[in-house]
Design a binder for these strands. Structure first.
Lengths: 148, 148
DNA sequence: TTAAGTGCAAATATTTTGCTGTCAC
DNA sequence: GTGACAGCAAAATATTTGCACTTAA
């Protein structure tokens, strides 16, 4: 993810540990991968990377760990406009939610933080009296290089 | 969908016809269902409704028709926070895009039009030089009745 | 020690593809 | 008449579940 992150290395491990979640070799590997990912990964990509460290990891363990992280609100699940199948992509939860733009031609994903986005969420909470747990804004279209 | 729609009845049929798309009994049924739906439907629900009119319709025809409508920009595809499996929900494209809020407890879906949402899209187009084809904002959380 | 976690196999859910026959225009 | 469309069967994709074995705490 292009946006810089300032969390200490291993913060997912420490965060979960402090909640009393059991730490295994497999989980440690998966958490490290998600934490240091330079772009959004899907379950299959996480599996492949994890197996480089721990060859025996099963894809089920990936799904179970992702679900654990979702439950604890430590990652966000994205669709990125379902550009290639129905899989999901994951990113660690950042302090500030952001918009995801996916280029329908080249597939590049860009992120964008915006005060209007923050304001829109506040508006929904207030005017619709809706308590937000997750807000996801995804845009599909053409990036500046592709619409030339 | 709660938001009122002002299109003439059969506008999906006429719209497609005017583009030279062939009209079959099956398509007519499916289009009518989507057009008059009072809430967001998934492929399986559309199939069940369609089969009441045309018992022979196959689920493949539903998917092919949905894909046709997507291609022509006549419907929007929603995830509604994947509250129950990974299926998609569909709604006819309205003149103004809106936010979808899904209650994680009762499952109710509410829609919300907002000038901030329109403004955010303009901002993305301008500041990121990104030409928007589809913008989808989905929120998961707790509606006013559920968080009592 | 023991409850939580893992791997494996199989199931489920959703959508897509290939092919042959049919129908709208 | 003919090319687009439909139905059926099967495949493909993504994720989840059941169960017996293993391991972190």
């Amino acid at each position: 993810m292009p946006l810089p992150h300032t969390e200490a290395p291993g913060y997912l491990v420490s965060n979960l540990a402090s909640r009393g979640v059991r730490m295994t070799r497999q989980r440690r590997a998966i958490l490290g991968i998600i934490e240091t990912a330079s772009h959004h990964l899907d379950a299959a990509q996480i599996l492949r990377k994890a197996q480089k460290q721990e060859p025996e990891v099963d894809r089920v363990t990936i799904y179970r760990t992702l679900s654990l992280l979702k439950r604890h609100g430590l990652i966000d699940e994205l669709d990125l406009m379902h550009l290639q199948g129905e899989k999901h992509f994951y990113e660690r939860k950042t302090p500030r939610e952001h918009v995801h733009m996916t280029c329908l031609r080249c597939g590049r994903v860009t992120e964008f933080e915006s005060r209007l986005f923050d304001g829109l969420k506040k508006q929904v909470q207030k005017e619709c009296r809706f308590q937000i747990a997750v807000a996801r804004m995804e845009i599909g279209g053409y990036c500046s290089s592709c619409r030339a």
